[in-house]
Computed example of a mutant assay.
Amino acid sequence: MALQATEPEVPLDTAGGAGATAAGRRDRLRFLRNPKTVTGLAILGVFVLLAVAGSWLAPHDPSARGDELLQPPSWQHPFGTTQTGQDIFSQILVGTRGVLVVGFLAAAIATVLGVIVGVTAGYLGGVGDDLLSSVSNVFLVIPGLPLIIIITSLLPDTNDLTIALVIGLTSWAWGARVLRAQTLSLRGRDYVQAARATGESTWRIIVCELLPNLTPVIASGFVGTVIFAVLAEITLAFIGVADISHWNWGTVLFWAQNNQALAQDAWWWFVPAGLCIALLGTALSLINFGIDEFVNPRLRSQGRAGRGVRMRVGFTPVVRAPRGTPVRDAPRTGTIRKDSQP
């Protein structure tokens, strides 16, 4: 028979002021220590660098035609050429800027609108909440991508700024609903009630008390909106709604599809753009997962419990009680094994 004595566990960060301070610093750096976050930020940093310096790093003019028609990847053309001799590597580099500009600008617009509508509706309540919630529900039931396609096709100019504005103005409703629900759970907290009792203004309570506690949710919604905006912008270019004379990854796929690159086994024409889309989406998803693990108490407690179990495994001493010793007289630490034979 084996019995194991249990003792209450003492958190490591309560041992003293220095330990608590060190634990606080570790908590603040947990987000940057997360492998998912580090990987996502590294991949995203590479794309940002290409977006900034892509036009200078491009070895050729992406629109210039050449004599090497539909050639596979080589040292001179790392991603091969099109059927008109254009360098695909230069098209990918130059097109990175448009993808990121549209993605981040549209996400910024949608996030600002979502914060204004969601937090205001959740905190004020009453008629204002009903009106803003009704507007959000209308935008939620309308399919987002078809609405973007219809609006963009009706506009005379479809540059990056116009596309970002259309995507941002039609993609804020989901974030607003999430922020409204979070605000409803926060407006009854003690610190909010204390701020009201001291006569703080409504906007100061929203800005100084509510928004700091909603920052992780806002950041997660921003990253998710970037992913949607990037895919929407590439879709518009791929179906020919956007300006196909302006290079981005969707434009590369548009010309590859129109010239039947797949039928000609010209895999190098569409695979690089597809890989870039997949890598950018993976980077943003990893950052989103890192934010979720950072702000989710359940995920944090599971991680700490797992680390605690791994630290304790293999360090439990085994104490054998002499034969005939009652269990109540045995040592109270470690694992007690009592021989069953007399």
Results as ranks from 00 to 15, higher is better:
I227R: 10
G314S: 03
L124Q: 05
I142H: 08
F254S: 00
G188C: 08
D27C: 09
Q302M: 14
I149Y: 04
A242R: 02
R189Y: 10
T251E: 04
D329A: 11
A2G: 05
V309G: 07
L140Y: 13
T14A: 11
Q302L: 15
E9N: 07
S285D: 09
P156M: 08
L44I: 06
L140M: 13
F139S: 09
N137M: 12
L280W: 04
L100M: 04
D27G: 15
G54S: 05
W269Y: 11
A195T: 07
V135F: 12
A20G: 14
G122Q: 08
N137R: 11
V115S: 14
C276K: 01
G16A: 08
V46D: 01
A23R: 15
A242F: 08
V313G: 06
T82M: 04
W269G: 03
V217P: 09
P146Q: 09
L140F: 14
G314H: 02
A164H: 02
A64S: 10
A195R: 03
D243Y: 03
L105Q: 00
I116P: 10
L3S: 10
I142G: 05
A197M: 15
D339I: 07
L29K: 03
A237L: 06
V48D: 02
G118T: 08
C276S: 11
V226T: 05
E9F: 14
